[in-house]
Amino acid sequence: MPNIRVLRDIKARNGVQTNELLRRAYLFVARNETLSPQVRHQAQLQLNTFGKYARPTTVKNRCAESGRGRGVMSEFALCRYQFRLKALNGDLPGVKKASW
């Protein structure tokens, strides 16, 4: 069972996906210097109405196993300790302990 921080992150990811197209359209209008300032301002106001879970910057790659937010290897979605445990256990194909 994922912890609350992971659940919140999943919520943010889903929010980003559902609102992405509309946000992009508003961003295009708001950042377009060839349009009139009134229109751009209205678009910016619309952008501000989206919740915080619609912004891609809210999303953070967390450990899928422990929910840890730091020391996460995004390729495996695991934090360094869980990565070590799984690698030593042989659960990660192609990963083995270095020795020379």
């Binding site: 994922p2 992971v6 992150d9 999943i10 990811r13 889903n14 980003v16 996906q17 559902t18 992405e20 197209l21 992009r24 961003l27 295009f28 209008v29 708001a30 950042r31 377009n32 210097e33 060839t34 891609p56 999303v59 790659n61 899928a64 995004s74 979605a77």
Partner: peptide, 21 residues
């Protein structure tokens, strides 16, 4: 002038974000 074209040109990031976990 800034035309905001980069917001239309960039790929959508939502689909890959959802697949992380």
């Amino acid at each position: 002038l800034r035309t905001g074209a980069k917001y239309l040109r960039a790929r959508l990031r939502g689909p890959s974000m959802v697949k992380y976990y």
